[in-house]
Simulated scan of single mutants.
Amino acid sequence: MRTAVYCSLDMINALALNLIATVMNWDNERATAEYAWLRLMSSMKYDGYSDFRAGVRFLESLVSWLRQFEQQDREAAYAFVQERMVYISTAEMQRIIENFIPETVTPYLRKAVAAELGIKPYEVWRTQAGAKAFLEHQRRCLFVGLSDGSRIDVLRRANSGRLSQEQVVPMLNVDNEKWKGLGKDLRGELGDDARFQDVYLIDDFTASGTTFIRFPDGEPKGKLAKFEQNAQEARKALKDDFPLADGYTLHIHHYVSTAQACQALEGRVAEAGEKLTDPSFGEAHITEGMRLPAVLPIGTSGTEDAMVAVAPSDEPYFGLCGTYYDHNLFERLEKHCKEAGQVDMRYGYANCALPLVLEHNTPNNSIPILWAETQGKLGHPMRPLFRRRDRHG
């Protein structure tokens, strides 16, 4: 039975490869050369995309995707996938998550403990007192997941025995009973005066930095605003039972971040410190597990005018974005897009023009020819290569 299943999958893959060769109008020599790359990349990476539908994996999706382009544009579309697209796989994301505590949190804590004890960071673990202070400071850290992408389950498993289950929260909205429980467990371990000194807000990816905190019409919006509101309401309701220290240190960590987002977040978090009424946090630190290079976006770093200074090698890809675009996509996401000052969605949210796919979903900051699915009401029908789950519409 197992052999029959494998044979069936091989036949499906062979059929898909033959269809790709037909769609691309390849001769036998070209097809043979491309088959090796397609088999390798589909089996090693792309077949793992979580939103492929039953019976459809990368090769089948690629056939359908390529067919939407006119024959003269298919080579550019295929070249984009082969040369420009970046795909972060499950295994790669897991390594980034596993490195979060040892490579981001631990160095910070070592420096903090060393400053308290008046020693060098590398001397913290030399004495029993230093090691104890480090573990206590680590226990006073609270880790909060901002979305499903924060992969709190993976974070917990990767740090079993290092982090307490009662210092990791998988959701943004924490109810008062949970706040009380977190504080009770912390005080039970470290004493009646113990409070969380550091709070890590964790998410999978940021491209523009605009959705984390923004002030349209002067009112705060975004994930930081929601967490801040929740914390303020809980502090008012719970009083002495609220487990966060006054002026705790806020850490904003994304597993993957663009260079553009890092710069934007610095300014937006500083703005939040000024505009939020009596913010619950004090200092704020912004970190990432992997920073994507500034040259990653198609043609430009994502300026307001996404057609400025287009690299010659990227001109065909920009052409695809303009020709194979349905403005109905913008109308579906209009409210969301206008907050970023956009007039269309040719190059993705905030005109980021990313060629990026994450294994669990494709960011809307990526160019829509990768992920959009429309009927062509106001332009060209769009078929996705990696279908996106979109919470905005």
Rank of each mutant, 00 (worst) to 15 (best):
L292C: 04
F100D: 02
V23D: 05
A350C: 08
A311W: 09
E189Q: 14
F227R: 08
A114D: 00
I12H: 04
H327I: 02
D390Q: 15
L370A: 11
Y87R: 03
I369Y: 00
S147R: 11
L155I: 02
D47V: 04
A129C: 04
S313Q: 12
P170S: 13
A350W: 01
Y255D: 05
L59E: 12
T303I: 05
G183H: 03
V357N: 00
G348Y: 08
R140I: 01
D47S: 07
P355G: 12
G319E: 11
A4I: 11
K221Y: 02
N361G: 11
H251Y: 13
S257L: 07
A158I: 04
L190F: 02
L354A: 01
G191D: 15
R214G: 14
L356N: 03
V154S: 09
A372P: 06
A133G: 09
R74P: 02
Q375C: 08
L146K: 09
S147I: 01
G130C: 01
D314S: 07
A114H: 00
E189P: 00
A207P: 06
L296W: 01
Y325F: 04
S366N: 08
P363V: 05
N328G: 15
K184A: 14
A14T: 12
F100Q: 10
H137R: 15
S280H: 07
Q128T: 08
E288F: 07
K178V: 15
E103M: 13
P363Y: 02
V168Y: 01
Q167A: 00
R195G: 02
T303L: 15
G341Q: 11
T287S: 10
V124F: 01
F386R: 05
Y200G: 03
A309F: 07
P368Y: 03
W26K: 01
